[in-house]
Design a protein around this nucleic acid. Sequence first.
RNA 1: GGGUAGGUACCGAAGUGGCCAAACGGGGCGGACUGUAAAUCCGCUGGCUUACGCCUUCAGUGGUUCGAAUCCACUCCUGCCCA
Length: 394
Amino acid sequence: MSTFSDQLAALMDGCAQVLSEKELKAKLALGRPLKVKLGVDPTSPDIHLGHTVGLTKLRQFQELGHEAILIIGDFTAMIGDPSGRSATRPHLSHEQVMEHAKTYQEQAFRILDPEKTVIRYNGEWFGKMNFQDVMRLNSRVTLQQMLQREDFRERIDKGLPVRAHEIQYPIMQGWDSVVIEADVELGGTDQLFNILVGRDLQHEEGQHQQVAMMLPILTGLDGTQKMSKSLGNAVGVSEPPGEMFGKLMSISDEQMGEYYRLLLHEGISPTAHPMEAKKGLAERLTARYHSAEEARRAREEFELRFSKKDLESADLPSYAAASDLPRDIITLGVDAFERVLGVKKSRGDLRRLVEGGSVSWRGEKITDPKALIPASESGVLKLDRKNAVRIGER
RNA sequence: GGGUAGGUACCGAAGUGGCCAAACGGGGCGGACUGUAAAUCCGCUGGCUUACGCCUUCAGUGGUUCGAAUCCACUCCUGCCCA
């Protein structure tokens, strides 16, 4: 059993900002399990590493005997959190959201202890509200307050639309806290405003105010924007090991420190070569969501394929063209991309890849778009930087 | 409801009758170099069994014209000002 001050230090670790440490300390001193809230909106079907920062903190609370409450924002997801957004989000139907919610929950349990996690859907209370209730809720905040938010301000300044329903978002998130009587709410630093609205609403309801714990936001693979599926810079926790390893290897050296700190909770060894450090990061994270064995194999594959450039012995997907398909490089490439790699490419795309010198057959670069690959031959067809297929027997 | 400025490719933004599949910048992709890092340089960035050819595209519909992203009419959408 740890003392309160040990707990406090452990919990504070890794946070970007806590409002306030004093309040947290007081809550811990109550000696009862605290209700710790983390909200996720199932706007896409997958949880990515960015989400895991908050989930891991929640897990930590869980391990210290507190009550983890994961709010699945089935209603809020239909609005979409305007945080950090420069545009209104596309509408999602409730059915879509619920589809996502299923996989979300399953994936969140890769980090949380399912036995000890309380899952609440906020549709549970928002779905029952009538218009009168909504109006009453809205009367508790002022428009000025809502418009103080940087994201809204910015859009207003730029002459971009801010739709009326978007300002409901912070109110809804805040109301979640009232309903579950949260003691602590976790969120990214961009959640500050929303979490503070929760505090205000709790205060109005005569509840104790929740402590706001803000965690740093993980930068995506592009190295600039926050990790997000819709920006295409995310690493999903359910991605296959090879994919996960490879994506992690593509982060920049500058970002590595951030990934070490936020995901592994440690610093980089100052003596390690950056590449070794990155491979270590990639392997450990891959192992976390798969297995040590799969992570090791992913690393070996990676080294074989990209470091040694030994495509011949790499474990590539095999591709067999239909016998009636023309054997030219473009046709085969498009077909292989679509059927084996699951990527839709146009003939124009393939032509550009060939002319750009990206495609090679049995280690020989092919730049003639009309080149043919005889059906009798077997070998490795490299299509672009990341994709290659094996044709015929090894 | 009135006035006014707009809606161009992934994004920003030129173009205001033919030379426009549409400048330029960003992003993205590919190549060289590498450590699938960074930096740098180069190329590509609507589709088509590959063509100095055809097709689709400049909010939508319908016109004018030999010819429209560009002109006209109506419609839809957005900002700003007024109510």
